[in-house]
Design a protein around this nucleic acid. Sequence first.
RNA 1: CGGGCUGUAGCGCAGCGGCUAGCGUACAUCGUUCGGGACGAUGGGGUCGCCGGUUCAAAUCCGGCCAGCCCGACCA
Length: 497
Amino acid sequence: MAKQNKTAISPTRAEDYPEWYQQVVKAADMAETSAVRGCMVIKPWGYAIWEHIQKNLDNMFKETGHVNAYFPLFIPKSFLEKEAEHVEGFAKECAVVTHHRLEAGPDGGLIPAGELDEPLIVRPTSETIIGATFAKWVQSYRDLPLLINQWANVVRWEMRTRLFLRTAEFLWQEGHTVHATKEEAVEETEKMLGVYATFARDYMAIPVLTGVKTESEKFPGAEKTYCIEAMMQDKKALQAGTSHFLGQNFAKASDIKFLDDQGQLQYGWTTSWGVSTRLIGGLIMTHSDDNGLVLPPRLAPTQIVILPVLHKDGDHGEVLAYCEALAKDLKHTFYGDDPIRVDIDKRDIRGGEKSWGWVKKGVPLRIEVGPRDIAENKIFGARRDEDGKFSMDRDEFVAKAASLLEEIQNGLLTRATTLRDENTVELDSEDAFYDFFTNNAGFVKAHWNGSPVIEEKIKNDLNVTIRCIPLDDTDGEGVCIFSGEKSPRKVIFGKSY
RNA sequence: CGGGCUGUAGCGCAGCGGCUAGCGUACAUCGUUCGGGACGAUGGGGUCGCCGGUUCAAAUCCGGCCAGCCCGACCA
């Protein structure tokens, strides 16, 4: 009561966005830092969200013909050295294993012993080790396309880390494919980008721009990097997924060759694509508010939580039985392809506190059931995406639950889309550009002549980068706002995570 | 990896040479409460991040290391 006007999360987004983010992660009990530098512990609530991301994405990968496999955590140093750009890109952030044994030291401690002939790199990504394997698997054009995915952890020794957004170790999936022709490989790259964009929109309720990275932003060793870019509530861009057309670079480095239908030996054309636990960071920063996490129903570990109102002197049995029956009916209802996920919180703690706990965890619908409701065969509910509560006939609620969840899901997408569109502007002069990014953040669409020198300059001046060259470009040619030279198309600029 | 700040109970913090280390909150028990963060009483919980140095005496001063946060460079 005394705290009625206060928000659950302090500071608020407006007061201190980065700190707010950390507090949301903590308040929702999703993850925490560990004793190991830069590495996080993903707690059950955070991991459950990842499991739903995995499950749905995995289905989409299967539907597009991919199968899962698993490759080693360790990559021989010599493998990483095979592709020049690749080495250069990742060398600065690799964990290196040099020994395979520990021996007792003089002070009772342990010292590494048994030095390896060749150091092993903890994978920062798996192109090279998978390439070496694919070289053995691929002999004939009949072996193609080879469509493989792996769910794994990778390590990139980051200097500056933030839970979910950038950690030294993170979980992801990496798809790796080999194709007989360039066209087919490009098609695959674009297809998987489409899968990511669809997943982001339909499951995460995050609208994304699809596009291509500039030369300076592309994946080390790729011919072309496609990406999905989302706008967070602080108007900064988050790269939420990438899909790479690798040309024949890795095929040549790993010797992936096949005999075509003419009996000619050819190098394969490869792709790779991935999304990571960073998506959870994007989810938080897209939807959450000053009361904590807000989850899109499709990914919420619990979609509806039932909170029995238990008076000390009242009949707990009756209330709980009513809740159990309600939960059972809801679980027999489908939302999307799955039964609604319902939880009853029977913990004996204060109602307000219990309720706030679920607000902070972002559960889409909270239902309170007390003796008064039971007498009238009603429920009392609250939506996470709106203020206020509603009273509803019990059976009517069961019938409407799935459509309510869908309404919340769609509402979140609409809200996020509106925010993005309201903060996307088209500018046609350098002054306007500098003026915008000096005072604001957001997406700016503007003509650019393709020069990396200009990219470098605006990065230094404003900390702004080209997020992507949009795929759905309809603007056509124009004049570069920085150089006055001819520009083939408009590109998207923004500050990024 | 550079610059700044920080590390004391689960969490948030005070104490910054002096003898028994404290407060809020959370936790446990009891009572009164109970439909959006209750109140009272009692109680449990700490090798003051780690290692070393200075000192009669170190949470407190010094050095090194580890971890975190912010700002850069780098990156999903």
